[in-house]
Write a protein that binds this DNA or RNA. Structure first.
Lengths: 231, 231
DNA sequence: ACCACAATATGGTCAGACCATACCGAATCC
DNA sequence: GGATTCGGTATGGTCTGACCATATTGTGGT
């Protein structure tokens, strides 16, 4: 008991230090999307760590959707700061769904919350309903459940885009992607999609005419039809 | 042109293959939180790749909140499957806010959406208002803006917990954490917190009495007071 | 039975090498 | 002079092998 000193319970791993340094530098230097980070070897030298640790930090940043790495030479090469929260959110949701720690019910409720909000906002914005009409046409012409769901996703994501909130739009896309498997199953179980299409047309009309309350109601009814067990 | 064959535009990096394999195995074997993954060296051998690639994949999985690595030996050592979407969501939001690609307005609107939903659900659940009362007391006794915000966060997160939806609760926590800096600024700018506390008491009353509509209104008014510019 | 200590399995880190990619620039050819 | 070709070079991607830190497990002595 003479030489063993207590240490902080949680030691920080090297790559975590690197992460903190990089994030600090981003805040300090006011770096934004498009700016380049130093090369891995250079960063390793600057921080006095091995390249492996820098690389692990890069993987984390890439996973979080804030850097994009590109080999080669020139202005586009190296680690460039970006901002793609989509894939990160999607991965988080998909993997946690796969581990069965989130129940489908929770995801569907979340989706309902977002769709209601987005539809109301879109009705207030009253812009760009052409994307909605196009998705509607795609669903009409769909030959399989997968194809139908694909355009259905486009329809609902377009509403979120129109709402103007990129965070919510990204979250919407992630939710749809992570549960696309279940959506296909739901459509197949339903068989007939004419009811869903009637709902879609009602939503489109409400958005086009700028009626937030009706849009909210329409979306609520739509999801109640799509997921009868959960709602 | 005799031997150079075209390759798919996007080559997959080794660690991405490893990720896919692991995710596939999770789905295939029905692994859930608590189960262990093979050791890094063993996994590398099984998949025929280097340990570095396996480690980079582990970093990604850890970032996404689905594995937790522990050195040493025994049943708790190694890579264990978990499910902690919180830190992953928080990091995604915080870093993307830091890159100024998400505007504060978008985050606040998202928060408003979630809080309205959560308050209504909590009022329907009518359970566990003791955590709310405790947070309220903490805010009363707070000596600084930081301390006030800390208990304020606890209050609002508790509402999300009561709602019973873990995904939305996790998202709420992440939103609060990633914008805690701005919350402190807002409280300091406001100076007097008595108005906020009156709002909190009104929210608590609505939840306790099981009045979803009043809870929604109370939350809306509260956030309008907290972020006057954004609402 | 207990305790001290070695063995071992695990993640964490490092150094150095080599490959693949893509730009840059100089040499070459027309 | 302009276009083309080809080597140089900076970058990320991968591998190997070693060593360290940590924590359990086994073993031997008391």
């Amino acid at each position: 008991m003479t030489d063993t000193r207590w240490r902080p319970v949680k030691r920080t791993r090297t790559f975590e230090d690197v992460l903190a340094q990089i994030e600090h530098r981003i805040a300090e230097d006011g770096l934004t999307a498009g700016d380049r980070l130093p090369a891995e070897r250079r960063l390793a030298e600057q921080l006095g760590v091995s390249r492996s640790s820098v690389r692990e930090a890069m993987r984390v940043l890439e996973t979080l959707g804030v850097v994009s790495s590109q080999a080669g030479r020139g202005p586009d090469a190296g680690a460039v700061l970006t901002s793609r929260p989509d894939s990160a959110l999607t991965d988080v949701l998909r993997l946690n769904l796969g581990l069965a720690t989130l129940e489908l019910r929770e995801v569907i409720d979340t989706r309902l919350m977002i769709e209601r909000w987005a539809a109301a906002q879109a009705a207030r914005a009253r812009a760009g309903t052409s994307a909605l009409a196009e998705a509607l046409k795609g669903m009409d012409e769909a030959g399989s459940a997968e194809e139908f769901v694909e355009h259905d996703t486009a329809f609902h994501c377009a509403i979120a885009e129109i709402s103007g909130n990129r965070l919510i739009a990204a979250f919407m896309r992630s939710l749809r992607e992570s549960m696309s498997r279940y959506a296909v199953e739901a459509v197949e179980r339903l068989g007939d999609t004419s009811g869903l299409q009637a709902d879609h047309r009602r939503i489109l009309r409400a958005v086009h005419e700028g009626d937030p309350e009706e849009a909210t109601r329409a979306v609520t009814d739509h999801l109640a039809r799509a997921y009868p067990a959960a709602c």
